[in-house]
Design a protein around this nucleic acid. Structure first.
Lengths: 110, 110
DNA sequence: TACGATGCCTCGTCGTTCTAGGCATCAAGC
DNA sequence: GCTTGATGCCTAGAACGACGAGGCATCGTA
Protein backbone atom coordinates (compact mmCIF):
# COMPACT_ATOMS: atom_id res chain seq x y z
CA UNK A 1 0.00 0.00 0.00
CA UNK A 2 1.05 3.60 -0.25
CA UNK A 3 3.30 4.47 2.63
CA UNK A 4 2.47 7.24 4.99
CA UNK A 5 4.57 9.85 3.32
CA UNK A 6 3.82 12.62 0.85
CA UNK A 7 5.48 15.81 1.87
CA UNK A 8 2.89 18.48 2.24
CA UNK A 9 3.05 21.43 -0.05
CA UNK A 10 3.60 24.60 1.87
CA UNK A 11 0.22 26.14 2.49
CA UNK A 12 -1.90 23.02 2.68
CA UNK A 13 -1.36 22.19 6.33
CA UNK A 14 -3.65 24.85 7.75
CA UNK A 15 -6.46 23.66 5.55
CA UNK A 16 -6.01 20.08 6.71
CA UNK A 17 -5.92 21.07 10.36
CA UNK A 18 -9.02 23.24 10.08
CA UNK A 19 -10.81 20.49 8.23
CA UNK A 20 -9.87 17.89 10.85
CA UNK A 21 -11.04 20.09 13.70
CA UNK A 22 -14.23 20.91 11.82
CA UNK A 23 -15.46 17.42 12.67
CA UNK A 24 -15.29 18.26 16.37
CA UNK A 25 -12.86 19.55 18.99
CA UNK A 26 -9.62 17.66 19.10
CA UNK A 27 -6.18 17.83 20.68
CA UNK A 28 -2.94 18.12 18.75
CA UNK A 29 -1.87 14.54 18.85
CA UNK A 30 -5.34 13.51 17.79
CA UNK A 31 -5.31 15.90 14.86
CA UNK A 32 -2.33 14.06 13.44
CA UNK A 33 -4.11 10.76 13.78
CA UNK A 34 -7.33 12.06 12.35
CA UNK A 35 -5.64 13.50 9.29
CA UNK A 36 -3.85 10.22 8.75
CA UNK A 37 -7.07 8.34 9.06
CA UNK A 38 -9.13 10.71 6.90
CA UNK A 39 -6.53 10.55 4.16
CA UNK A 40 -6.47 6.76 4.34
CA UNK A 41 -2.86 6.70 5.54
CA UNK A 42 -1.63 8.91 2.72
CA UNK A 43 -0.78 11.96 4.81
CA UNK A 44 1.43 12.01 7.86
CA UNK A 45 1.78 15.33 9.63
CA UNK A 46 4.91 15.70 11.72
CA UNK A 47 4.66 17.03 15.26
CA UNK A 48 7.31 19.59 14.43
CA UNK A 49 5.00 20.93 11.75
CA UNK A 50 1.79 20.62 13.68
CA UNK A 51 2.46 22.43 16.93
CA UNK A 52 3.88 25.59 15.41
CA UNK A 53 0.98 25.57 12.98
CA UNK A 54 -1.53 25.27 15.79
CA UNK A 55 0.06 28.20 17.56
CA UNK A 56 -0.01 30.26 14.39
CA UNK A 57 -3.61 29.38 13.65
CA UNK A 58 -4.78 30.16 17.15
CA UNK A 59 -3.04 33.54 16.97
CA UNK A 60 -5.17 34.27 13.94
CA UNK A 61 -8.28 33.35 15.86
CA UNK A 62 -9.26 30.51 13.63
CA UNK A 63 -9.01 28.10 16.54
CA UNK A 64 -9.48 28.36 20.28
CA UNK A 65 -7.91 25.98 22.75
CA UNK A 66 -8.81 24.65 26.14
CA UNK A 67 -7.12 22.18 28.47
CA UNK A 68 -9.32 19.24 29.21
CA UNK A 69 -9.24 15.54 29.87
CA UNK A 70 -9.60 12.95 27.17
CA UNK A 71 -11.54 9.68 27.44
CA UNK A 72 -8.56 7.88 28.97
CA UNK A 73 -8.12 10.51 31.66
CA UNK A 74 -5.09 12.27 30.24
CA UNK A 75 -4.72 16.03 30.10
CA UNK A 76 -4.69 17.44 26.61
CA UNK A 77 -5.24 20.75 24.88
CA UNK A 78 -8.40 20.66 22.82
CA UNK A 79 -8.81 22.90 19.82
CA UNK A 80 -12.14 24.10 18.46
CA UNK A 81 -12.98 25.84 15.23
CA UNK A 82 -14.13 29.44 15.59
CA UNK A 83 -16.58 31.12 13.29
CA UNK A 84 -13.67 32.88 11.59
CA UNK A 85 -11.97 29.51 11.33
CA UNK A 86 -14.90 28.08 9.47
CA UNK A 87 -14.80 31.01 7.09
CA UNK A 88 -11.09 30.57 6.64
CA UNK A 89 -11.49 26.89 5.89
CA UNK A 90 -13.91 27.80 3.14
CA UNK A 91 -11.49 30.37 1.75
CA UNK A 92 -8.59 27.95 1.74
CA UNK A 93 -10.58 25.19 0.13
CA UNK A 94 -11.80 27.51 -2.60
CA UNK A 95 -8.26 28.69 -3.13
CA UNK A 96 -7.12 25.09 -3.40
CA UNK A 97 -9.84 24.34 -5.90
CA UNK A 98 -8.84 27.30 -8.04
CA UNK A 99 -5.22 26.23 -8.05
CA UNK A 100 -6.11 22.64 -8.83
CA UNK A 101 -8.29 23.80 -11.68
CA UNK A 102 -5.59 26.07 -13.07
CA UNK A 103 -3.01 23.31 -12.92
CA UNK A 104 -5.40 20.92 -14.60
CA UNK A 105 -5.81 23.45 -17.40
CA UNK A 106 -2.07 23.77 -17.83
CA UNK A 107 -1.77 20.00 -18.05
CA UNK A 108 -4.53 19.72 -20.60
CA UNK A 109 -3.22 22.52 -22.77
CA UNK A 110 -1.65 21.51 -26.03
CA UNK B 1 -13.43 36.91 -15.42
CA UNK B 2 -11.01 35.53 -12.90
CA UNK B 3 -8.11 37.88 -12.51
CA UNK B 4 -4.58 36.77 -13.14
CA UNK B 5 -3.71 35.99 -9.58
CA UNK B 6 -3.69 32.81 -7.50
CA UNK B 7 -0.53 32.57 -5.49
CA UNK B 8 1.38 29.45 -6.33
CA UNK B 9 1.94 26.91 -3.62
CA UNK B 10 5.60 26.37 -2.97
CA UNK B 11 6.71 23.40 -5.03
CA UNK B 12 4.31 23.73 -7.93
CA UNK B 13 6.33 26.16 -10.01
CA UNK B 14 8.87 23.66 -11.28
CA UNK B 15 6.09 21.44 -12.52
CA UNK B 16 4.49 24.30 -14.40
CA UNK B 17 7.76 25.37 -15.98
CA UNK B 18 8.64 21.86 -17.07
CA UNK B 19 5.17 21.40 -18.46
CA UNK B 20 5.34 24.67 -20.40
CA UNK B 21 8.72 23.83 -21.89
CA UNK B 22 7.55 20.33 -22.73
CA UNK B 23 5.54 21.86 -25.56
CA UNK B 24 8.73 23.11 -27.16
CA UNK B 25 11.82 25.20 -26.37
CA UNK B 26 11.02 28.57 -24.94
CA UNK B 27 12.72 31.56 -23.34
CA UNK B 28 12.01 32.80 -19.84
CA UNK B 29 9.72 35.65 -20.67
CA UNK B 30 7.79 33.37 -22.99
CA UNK B 31 7.39 30.74 -20.29
CA UNK B 32 5.51 33.24 -18.17
CA UNK B 33 3.21 34.05 -21.04
CA UNK B 34 2.68 30.44 -21.98
CA UNK B 35 1.75 29.46 -18.43
CA UNK B 36 -0.67 32.35 -18.28
CA UNK B 37 -2.21 31.32 -21.56
CA UNK B 38 -2.33 27.59 -20.76
CA UNK B 39 -4.04 28.29 -17.45
CA UNK B 40 -6.52 30.59 -19.18
CA UNK B 41 -5.25 33.64 -17.32
CA UNK B 42 -5.54 32.01 -13.91
CA UNK B 43 -1.82 31.77 -13.16
CA UNK B 44 0.67 34.60 -13.29
CA UNK B 45 4.28 33.70 -12.59
CA UNK B 46 6.41 36.56 -11.35
CA UNK B 47 9.80 37.20 -12.90
CA UNK B 48 11.30 37.19 -9.44
CA UNK B 49 10.05 33.64 -9.08
CA UNK B 50 10.81 32.43 -12.56
CA UNK B 51 14.44 33.29 -13.14
CA UNK B 52 15.75 31.80 -9.91
CA UNK B 53 13.65 28.74 -10.63
CA UNK B 54 15.09 28.38 -14.10
CA UNK B 55 18.60 28.59 -12.70
CA UNK B 56 17.77 25.97 -10.10
CA UNK B 57 16.16 23.64 -12.61
CA UNK B 58 19.01 23.90 -15.06
CA UNK B 59 21.48 23.11 -12.28
CA UNK B 60 19.57 19.89 -11.76
CA UNK B 61 19.87 19.09 -15.43
CA UNK B 62 16.17 19.06 -16.11
CA UNK B 63 16.57 21.89 -18.60
CA UNK B 64 19.33 23.05 -20.92
CA UNK B 65 19.63 26.57 -22.22
CA UNK B 66 20.97 28.18 -25.33
CA UNK B 67 21.10 31.80 -26.49
CA UNK B 68 19.28 32.28 -29.72
CA UNK B 69 17.18 34.76 -31.61
CA UNK B 70 13.43 34.82 -31.49
CA UNK B 71 11.07 35.45 -34.38
CA UNK B 72 11.31 39.22 -33.89
CA UNK B 73 15.09 39.19 -33.97
CA UNK B 74 15.73 39.66 -30.28
CA UNK B 75 18.30 37.70 -28.33
CA UNK B 76 16.83 35.39 -25.75
CA UNK B 77 17.84 32.36 -23.76
CA UNK B 78 15.90 29.32 -24.89
CA UNK B 79 15.29 26.44 -22.53
CA UNK B 80 14.71 22.85 -23.62
CA UNK B 81 13.54 19.87 -21.63
CA UNK B 82 16.14 17.15 -21.11
CA UNK B 83 15.36 13.48 -20.81
CA UNK B 84 15.78 13.76 -17.05
CA UNK B 85 13.48 16.77 -17.14
CA UNK B 86 10.79 14.75 -18.79
CA UNK B 87 11.17 12.09 -16.11
CA UNK B 88 11.05 14.74 -13.43
CA UNK B 89 7.90 16.24 -14.87
CA UNK B 90 6.27 12.84 -14.64
CA UNK B 91 7.43 12.45 -11.05
CA UNK B 92 6.12 15.84 -10.04
CA UNK B 93 2.80 15.35 -11.71
CA UNK B 94 2.32 11.98 -10.04
CA UNK B 95 3.26 13.54 -6.74
CA UNK B 96 0.72 16.30 -7.32
CA UNK B 97 -1.93 13.73 -8.17
CA UNK B 98 -1.24 11.81 -4.97
CA UNK B 99 -1.51 14.94 -2.88
CA UNK B 100 -4.68 16.05 -4.62
CA UNK B 101 -6.18 12.62 -4.04
CA UNK B 102 -5.20 12.63 -0.39
CA UNK B 103 -6.69 16.05 0.16
CA UNK B 104 -9.86 15.04 -1.62
CA UNK B 105 -10.13 12.09 0.77
CA UNK B 106 -9.71 14.34 3.78
CA UNK B 107 -12.43 16.60 2.50
CA UNK B 108 -14.81 13.74 1.86
CA UNK B 109 -14.21 12.13 5.22
CA UNK B 110 -17.00 12.40 7.73
C1' DT C 1 11.00 61.94 -26.52
C1' DA C 2 8.73 59.18 -23.61
C1' DC C 3 6.61 55.13 -22.51
C1' DG C 4 5.25 50.30 -22.47
C1' DA C 5 6.46 45.81 -23.81
C1' DT C 6 10.01 42.57 -24.22
C1' DG C 7 13.99 40.38 -22.38
C1' DC C 8 17.54 39.23 -18.57
C1' DC C 9 19.09 39.28 -13.81
C1' DT C 10 19.93 39.80 -8.32
C1' DC C 11 18.94 40.72 -3.53
C1' DG C 12 16.55 40.42 0.67
C1' DT C 13 12.43 39.17 3.11
C1' DC C 14 9.03 36.20 4.57
C1' DG C 15 6.41 32.19 5.64
C1' DT C 16 6.26 27.43 6.33
C1' DT C 17 7.71 22.64 6.80
C1' DC C 18 10.96 19.55 8.63
C1' DT C 19 14.60 17.26 11.60
C1' DA C 20 16.03 16.71 15.89
C1' DG C 21 15.86 17.37 20.15
C1' DG C 22 13.56 17.75 25.16
C1' DC C 23 10.06 16.50 28.69
C1' DA C 24 6.18 13.91 31.21
C1' DT C 25 2.75 10.16 31.85
C1' DC C 26 0.89 5.60 31.26
C1' DA C 27 0.25 0.57 30.05
C1' DA C 28 2.27 -3.71 28.89
C1' DG C 29 5.82 -7.09 28.79
C1' DC C 30 9.95 -9.10 30.55
C1' DG D 1 11.21 -3.36 39.18
C1' DC D 2 12.52 -1.82 34.58
C1' DT D 3 12.21 -0.92 30.00
C1' DT D 4 9.86 0.24 25.96
C1' DG D 5 6.40 2.23 23.03
C1' DA D 6 2.47 5.02 22.71
C1' DT D 7 0.45 9.19 24.06
C1' DG D 8 0.77 14.02 24.91
C1' DC D 9 3.15 18.79 24.78
C1' DC D 10 6.80 21.86 23.23
C1' DT D 11 11.18 24.43 21.01
C1' DA D 12 15.21 25.68 18.08
C1' DG D 13 17.46 25.73 13.89
C1' DA D 14 17.94 24.68 9.09
C1' DA D 15 16.28 24.59 4.57
C1' DC D 16 13.61 25.87 0.91
C1' DG D 17 11.19 28.50 -2.41
C1' DA D 18 7.91 32.31 -3.90
C1' DC D 19 7.71 37.07 -3.94
C1' DG D 20 8.50 42.26 -4.19
C1' DA D 21 11.56 45.55 -5.55
C1' DG D 22 15.13 46.88 -7.84
C1' DG D 23 18.51 47.24 -11.91
C1' DC D 24 19.67 47.06 -16.90
C1' DA D 25 19.12 47.00 -22.16
C1' DT D 26 16.47 47.03 -26.54
C1' DC D 27 12.63 47.99 -29.50
C1' DG D 28 8.27 49.97 -31.47
C1' DT D 29 4.98 53.40 -31.25
C1' DA D 30 2.58 57.51 -29.97
Amino acid sequence: MSQVKADLLQGTLDMLILRAVSLGPLHGYGIIQRIRQMSEEMLNVEQGSLYPALYRIEQRDWLTSEWDTNETGRRAKFYSLTRAGRRQLKIEEESWDRLALAIAKVRQAT
